[in-house]
């Protein structure tokens, strides 16, 4: 099965995307993981990135490519992506957990400190995480940024949260 048949990428497919930083780059710093791979006519991520880390170029249907060395993990591309296909990942912690930033558009929003269920790309619950921050800003245009601590081994697996309540 592929995303075109069941709607979601496998981890292997994500790792092979030009928008996915190498495992080494992910270890080194907080970075964006761009899970976009289908030649859509779209480039707000490139426009959003002031660090020049994301390239779409010409034609506009190029799949976004990341230069992880330039990415400072600010997350502006994440809130500007109309496909909600960008996630920010911080694997630099040394407590066995990673911080994951998710674009989130469901109400009610989780609360700071709340324990939430973690879902993978297929929507299956794979574990539990703890919300560290929920950010909203005019610049985000009603897409909230939910920051959640997840077990490190789920950093590239968890892609959504579900509330327990």
């Amino acid at each position: 099965m592929s995303i075109l048949e069941d709607g979601y990428f496998t981890l292997e497919e994500v790792l092979a995307l030009p928008g996915c930083p190498s495992p080494e780059a992910m270890r080194g710093r907080r970075v964006a993981v761009v899970e976009c791979g289908h030649e859509l006519p779209c480039n707000p991520c490139e426009t959003a990135c002031k660090a020049g880390a994301l390239t779409v170029g010409t034609p506009i249907t190029n799949v976004p490519k990341i230069d992880a060395a330039c990415c400072d993990g600010c997350g502006i591309c994440m809130v500007d992506c109309p496909g909600l296909a960008i996630f920010i990942l911080d694997l630099t912690r040394d407590d066995g957990r990673a911080e994951l930033w998710l674009p989130h558009e469901f109400l009610p929003l989780p609360e700071m400190g709340e324990a939430v269920l973690l879902c993978d790309r297929a929507g299956s619950v794979v574990g539990e995480g703890q919300v560290t921050k929920v950010r909203q800003a005019k610049r985000f245009d009603r897409t909230a940024v939910v920051q959640v601590l997840v077990p490190e081994e789920l950093a590239m697996t968890a892609r959504a949260i579900a509330l327990r309540r």
Binding site: I3, G7, Y8, L40, G83, L84
Partner: peptide, 10 residues
């Protein structure tokens, strides 16, 4: 596919 991914993970 990105639209599909949004509902799949939900």
């Amino acid at each position: 596919p990105v639209h599909a991914a949004k509902i799949a993970r939900a």
